[in-house]
Nucleic acid binder design. Sequence first.
DNA 1: CATACTTATCGACGTCCGTCAATGTAAAGG
DNA 2: CCTTTACATTGACGGACGTCGATAAGTATG
Lengths: 114, 114
Amino acid sequence: MSKRSPELVDDSVVECCSPLASEVLTEKEAHDVARIFAALGDPVRLRLLSMIASSDEACSCNLEAPLGKSQPTVSHHTRILAEAGLIVGEKRGRWTWWRTVPDRLEMAARLLRP
Amino acid sequence: MSKRSPELVDDSVVECCSPLASEVLTEKEAHDVARIFAALGDPVRLRLLSMIASSDEACSCNLEAPLGKSQPTVSHHTRILAEAGLIVGEKRGRWTWWRTVPDRLEMAARLLRP
DNA sequence: CATACTTATCGACGTCCGTCAATGTAAAGG
DNA sequence: CCTTTACATTGACGGACGTCGATAAGTATG
């Protein structure tokens, strides 16, 4: 999909982490989890994710205008969300349709709340 | 507590946000929430938070060594976590004791999971 | 007070991030 | 084919971030 850094966040993270409080994160766990939260740590990406989650499928063409960002910028952000495993894109005909990955959101939530 | 940017994340955020999916975040909501997730988006801060959460109170003196970071760096990170409302520090005697703020973690989790 | 100790702040450095114009790529429809 | 459409990638720029040494500010103890 991309030449450099196709690197998705390791899937083992999904299994790995019981709530933060139960045990101290290792360095690797912290690194992987941080990438997920970092993806959530930008206002534009949060609104992007929010838009996708609200209408359970969204194509990029509907995202640029409400965000007020350029097409490359939107593409950049969808990529980061996708690499964090929070959304997935499916190309159908002309458009790419984005959906959230509930398991991933669930997993992130589980880290914060027992 | 600090000369510049004592600016905590607006508390109204705690009320504001139903799950991401239910309604598209406004720009302000996204901005405030992003600061919280951004605070979680660094491996060192995650381990820091994890350590504090595990032993429900921790003093900075116990944090530097296991993190392998300098004292100013640890101080920097505790400050960011505190400004995000995720931890609070209490000065008792010589040391500052840090605790997590369960409501904040709960709120962040609620955004991700209905 | 003087000293030791703990934490916060400052200044500097290198790196990463968000942004966009320009360009590339791939598919659809004539 | 060629044009149009949708999206990705590149390159560049400014700003934010993580880090640490040095230093300041605050607090216990002699």
